[in-house]
């Protein structure tokens, strides 16, 4: 571990101020939210910023809201506040389960939704957001843009403002799981998110997202989604469709796991996710009736 490199700290107190600092610095300023990613990178000598913008004085970007159609989560919302928010219903189990799958409680108090999205790669928030057809709102001095969670590619003068996703309704369920090499607080080997909406026992909408579909790239298993949409789910249709489509992913090998192992675990998790969602939606529908 190396010493923390020297840098100047700026302490803005509004999103507007952050954006104008970023414009003035023309990409030379590094944003510091929870620091759970940045500080380890600095300690490992992978990053030596000259100017750091501390975002802890910008509470306006920490919120969870629901307007009846969309859930909106401020970029500086700590993961713990999102996962434990009373506005997040139990059918959004993918989000509620972050208290089990996302680091330790101390990490979840520091790590933020926007920080996880900005880090990109195989992170939990972009994966779950992708499975819910969510998007990311990004601001700069030039204005605002929206991007898909897998295509944030933050530029030097930009600040993530918000993550938002539509409400899939009562007959839906959203699931998430992480296979890691220790009981908790590790880095996932395979992470999977499944979101399912049913109508009269038929699949109306389905999203299946894996952390590695091609190389190290997160993505949807579109073939599987298309095959099962409009069908009735059973244990055997799920098993066959998963075998048929998840077999086609090509995750890359690294020191944590081989490509073959990742593919095997991906199949197991997607099958479990589909079965779990189907059962959960059916049980919810029975209570309605």
């Amino acid at each position: 571990m190396k010493a923390v490199p020297s840098f100047e700290v700026l302490t803005p107190s509004s999103a507007k101020e952050v954006v104008s600092i970023l414009a003035e610095e023309e990409g030379r300023a590094t944003l510091y939210a929870g620091g759970t990613d940045l500080m380890p990178m600095m300690k490992r000598g992978k990053l030596s910023p000259r100017k750091v913008v501390d975002l802890s004085g910008v509470p306006e970007l920490s919120y969870v809201r629901f307007d009846g159609f969309f859930f909106r989560v401020g970029a500086l919302t700590p993961i713990q506040d999102l996962a434990a928010s009373p506005l997040i219903p139990s059918r959004l189990y993918s989000i509620r389960s972050l208290t089990d799958y996302f680091g330790s409680e101390a990490t979840r108090h520091m790590a933020t939704v926007g920080g996880n999205l900005a880090s990109g790669g195989e992170r939990d928030i972009p994966l779950i957001l992708n499975s819910l057809d969510g998007e990311v709102k990004i601001g700069s001095a030039a204005g605002e843009r929206t991007a898909k969670p897998s295509e944030v590619n933050l530029k030097g003068d930009e600040l993530i403002l918000e993550a938002f996703f539509p409400d899939w309704g009562e007959h839906s369920y959203s699931w998430f799981s992480k296979f890691e090499k220790r009981a908790s607080n590790g880095i996932g080997v395979v992470t999977a998110a499944v979101s399912l909406k049913m109508e009269d026992n038929y699949v109306e909408k389905l999203r299946v997202v894996l952390n590695r579909v091609e190389g190290r790239t997160m993505g949807r298993v579109v073939g599987l989604e298309e095959e099962l949409t409009g069908s009735r789910l059973s244990a055997s249709t799920i098993r066959d469709a998963v075998e048929n489509h998840v077999s086609r992913i090509r995750p890359s090998t690294d020191f944590r796991a081989s490509s073959d192992f990742r593919k095997h675990v991906s199949k197991v998790l997607v099958r479990r996710g589909l079965e779990y969602c189907r059962k959960a939606v059916e049980e919810r529908s029975m209570h309605d009736g």
Partner: peptide
């Protein structure tokens, strides 16, 4: 609860 090794003093 937080990790004081990742929080900046400021």
């Amino acid at each position: 609860l937080v990790n004081s090794c990742m929080m900046l003093a400021v």
